[in-house]
Amino acid sequence: MTVSPRIELVPGGLSLSRLVFGAWRLLDGQNPGAEEVARLIDTSVDLGLTSFDHADIYGGYAVEEAFGAGLARWKGRRAGIELISKCGIMLASSNRPQNRLKHYDTGAAHIEASVERSLNNLGTDYLDLLLIHRPDPLMDADDTARAFERLVAAGKVRAVGVSNFTPDQFDLLASRLPFPLVTNQIEHSVLETSALTDGRLDHAQRLRYAPMIWSPLGGGSLFTGEAHASKGCGQR
């Protein structure tokens, strides 16, 4: 087994493997069976990638269930990995026919229902980390915070954070919580450097939390030479 360095998101708090397995494209162009997914999990953990990043919407709301089927076949210990998921984006999808238009929902009822579905899909009793996927222009910070508090108190979520938030949006939600937001998951690569100048990395350093980086290889375009197409995809 390869031992990978770990990173504490906040001092004394949840730690993740330095490299995180992103499940966004798990089902792109393929339909891996449970045994194949179990082998993928095993290989990742053997390489030191113990943290697995999900979102309810990945694969048109299908990735978590496929991963959970593999996790049920995996022979390892649940306590030896970290499961991360995100919620808040409401995609128009055949798997969510009630969503006629893409929008955002960071209300307590939706967050708590989404976590219950993620737990069921992944076949686990808890998420190690729950993130709000995108800023919601209509977010009621008090309502969102209430959901976070209830989920943490119930042991269904170990830690909470956000994704793609500005420093001000982060601070607003953090001001309503009795415990810290432990990370902001942001896009950053040599092709996307705005976090260096828009205050997001400065904010992380000031508050001493470790940001999570998504698409660090530019969605693969660093290898293919093709234009980076992550922006506007509605998935991250």
Rank of each mutant, 00 (worst) to 15 (best):
L181M: 08
L71I: 08
N164Y: 13
F179R: 01
V152C: 05
F67N: 01
Y104I: 06
H110N: 07
V157S: 00
A72M: 08
H203F: 07
G199A: 07
Q185Y: 10
L201T: 10
G76L: 07
Y58L: 01
A154K: 02
A108W: 06
V45H: 04
R39Y: 15
A79E: 14
L172I: 15
T106R: 09
D125W: 02
G12D: 08
D202K: 12
R208K: 13
Y126L: 00
E112A: 11
R117E: 07
I186H: 09
E116V: 05
G29K: 02
I111W: 07
S44A: 13
A108R: 10
T193G: 14
V20M: 13
N184R: 04
M90D: 11
P5H: 11
W214L: 11
G123V: 03
G68F: 01
R77I: 13
L130D: 01
N164M: 12
R100S: 11
G76H: 06
I89K: 09
R96C: 03
P135F: 08
A92N: 10
V190Y: 15
S230Y: 13
D142R: 11
I132P: 01
L173T: 09
L9F: 01
P216E: 08
Y209D: 04
P211K: 05
A229Q: 14
S94D: 12
V190Q: 13
E82P: 03
G161Y: 00
Y61F: 06
S93R: 06
H54L: 04
H54E: 04
T124W: 05
Q30H: 05
V160A: 02
R73V: 15
R146M: 05
T224Q: 03
L16C: 04
D140P: 02
T224G: 10
N164D: 15
S114K: 00
P211F: 08
S85P: 05
L122D: 00
